[in-house]
Design a protein around this nucleic acid. Sequence first.
DNA 1: TTTTGTGCAAAATGTTTGCAAGACG
DNA 2: CGTCTTGCAAACATTTTGCACAAAA
Lengths: 155, 155
Amino acid sequence: MKDIHYEKAVARFLIFLDEKGLRKTTERMMMLEEIYSRHDHFDAEDLYTTMVDKKQYVSRATIYNNLEVLLECGLIRKNQFGNNVTKYEKAANFRQHDHLICLDCQQVKEFCDPRLQQIQKMIGEMMQFEITQHDLLLYGHCEKTDCENKKILSN
Amino acid sequence: MKDIHYEKAVARFLIFLDEKGLRKTTERMMMLEEIYSRHDHFDAEDLYTTMVDKKQYVSRATIYNNLEVLLECGLIRKNQFGNNVTKYEKAANFRQHDHLICLDCQQVKEFCDPRLQQIQKMIGEMMQFEITQHDLLLYGHCEKTDCENKKILSN
DNA sequence: TTTTGTGCAAAATGTTTGCAAGACG
DNA sequence: CGTCTTGCAAACATTTTGCACAAAA
């Protein structure tokens, strides 16, 4: 749990809070710890319920507020996989990657492709945009035998 | 307005409705016509208000229902550009394209890159997914002089 | 005439906001 | 202490649902 990524994230967060004149609150540190112990794509409600279950009491308002702070600090990444729910994942120290979503069982896999950086650069020049980030979503059907039931899961 | 794309869309829609045993209602045909006369990325509410303004009375429930039908028929495409609003655009007879979004003024531009098809194919084989579609979002800052004000527009 | 589709209003979902009370610096 | 942050509940925005009535086939 207390791995190197988490330690680095804490350090970075503290510096960020200081630079922005924001306070180091228990809630913020608890959220960072919880997020860095997860390996999934979660939404605000997931985070809220897990934390409450673990007796790490934090209100929804605080969750929403600080997801914004963590996002601005670059410690988490925001995603939307086709439905209207905003999903997050920890971000620092990990390679840029993109997502592959199964339309039947909603599982999300990750992959990397270096060509995307080239595309991003080329399109930016061509369209006269300063592109800061990309997000490639591939949708399809996975090969799990128990998938074709089209179960509706939340992730 | 009554261009070739629209005519083809109508034909395709009628066949689709017939095959699925769905009915050809006034509301469905009005929606298709309105959508094919637009050239933007709109949401359910945009469509609702425009149609009501034009005295093409359709309820919100009907809008939502039939956006699903049109989507399944492949006549429209669904998008989410970072906020929690589902945007749509007409789809038939147009080349696959992707989107470039300005984080300041929210304008959306379109582009094509053939390499994406290759990436899609390769990743599908590698990850053992049958990939049916992709969606590449590039985010950045456009070069409009009046953009940096970070105006909040809806599109 | 039999269903499917529509419209309305209520409910459900996800997120934001206002404000009093609490905690950080 | 002053101010930022939290927690609660109410407000909001978007989408879904239940049901009576209308209209395709």
